Computed example of a mutant assay.
Amino acid sequence: MSYLSISAFIICQNEEHYLGHCIESLEGFAEIVIVDSGSTDGTLALIQSYIDKGWPLRLFRETWRGYAGQKQFALEQCTQDWCFNIDSDERLDKALRRLLPELLDAPDEVVGWRVARRPYLVGYGYTSENVRERKNLRLIRRGRGAYDLRQQVHEGIAASGEVRSATTGSLLHFRPLIIDEQILKENKYSTLKADQQIAEGRRPRLSKLIFSPIIYFLRLYFRNGLWRCGVPGFIEAMTGFIYAFLTQAKIAQRAALRARPNHDDYVGR
């Protein structure tokens, strides 16, 4: 079998129900690096089953370093000319697989490629190719990029050179959480984002609290095309609104508590 000179790298913990299809979508990659941070379900057994079948898979066990730190560790284990960042709940669609040889054949000055991602919506399925999230840098030449370890969430690779956007193809994101679970995730991620921005010196602004959630919703719903997906698309865009609002509200409240700590100043008769 002819292999593509790509190392896919994945960080995971307790991803038994998602990781298998992710691995299978990487068929033809020369190397698959998986860094596990302490799975207690059947994830490790699943990984071993693919190793036993002859998949080019290398497993590392590493204590959690944070999202950026964990991905940087995984990236450093890659040995191929190109490195591809993919999450356990993501899969390459057919168009992206067909495009990969062309991306690898890029001129020397091109060090990375941004790739679109299409989510799976509860009650709808994967969005069409007309509905895409913002393209992010996922494919990087080895040694030509690294993660910013200061980023606590939505971490990305900082490339040392020209980065282009893939014209077709997408990653498929399969984690269909009902709204009860999705709100818990948005709460967790917004806490990480707020704490990160406060550490960077970000101060609360009423304009950001008001307009950031609205802009986030409009970008997802209209520019990214979630309006095409009916009620599931509207719900998806609204979760983005909630994430943006929670982030700004937490920045504001943390500043307010520093200025005026909670004190019960009730005076009885």
Rank of each mutant, 00 (worst) to 15 (best):
R219A: 11
P101Q: 12
Y216E: 15
L103F: 09
W113E: 15
Y124A: 02
G54D: 03
G201P: 12
G156C: 15
A194W: 07
R134D: 11
K71R: 15
A194E: 09
Q196F: 10
W55V: 00
D89C: 09
D89K: 05
F241V: 08
S190L: 00
L172Q: 10
I242E: 09
G112C: 10
G125K: 07
G66A: 06
E186P: 00
P213R: 02
A244P: 01
G69Y: 02
S37Y: 05
K53M: 07
L171M: 14
Q72V: 01
I34D: 04
I178G: 12
A158C: 14
A146G: 08
I178A: 09
V122W: 01
L4A: 09
W64R: 03
I210T: 12
N85E: 08
I215K: 15
L206S: 10
S49A: 00
L149D: 14
H17K: 10
Y3T: 13
S165M: 11
I242M: 04
D81P: 06
P107H: 13
M238W: 15
A68P: 06
Q48I: 00
I198M: 13
V111K: 03
I235R: 14
R91E: 13
A8I: 02
G28C: 09
A249T: 04
E109P: 03
E76S: 11
P107I: 10
W227Y: 13
E129T: 11
L44V: 12
L46Q: 08
T239G: 01
I210S: 07
Y216F: 11
L257Y: 13
A237M: 03
D105E: 15
S25C: 02
Q70T: 11
A106S: 15
D93W: 07
S212H: 11
V122A: 05
A256S: 15
T79W: 11
Q182A: 09
F174H: 12
Y126P: 04
E236W: 09
L192M: 09
L92H: 05
V33A: 06
L177C: 08
T167W: 13
G42W: 04
V231Y: 11
L209T: 07
T127P: 04
K193Y: 04
R203L: 14
N14G: 12
H21W: 06
S7M: 06
C12T: 15
R205E: 14
T168N: 14
L177V: 06
Y216H: 12
K185I: 07
S5I: 01
L257H: 13
W113A: 13
V110S: 13
L57G: 00
I47H: 03
R228H: 08
T239P: 06
N262H: 07
R175I: 05
Y221T: 04
G28A: 10
F245R: 03
D108W: 03
G112T: 10
K71L: 14
L172R: 10
G38T: 07
D148M: 12
Q197G: 10
D93A: 03
G38H: 06
R118K: 09
V111P: 03
F211A: 07
P176R: 05
A146V: 02
E31I: 01
L57Q: 00
E24I: 00
V267T: 11
Y216D: 12
Q182S: 06
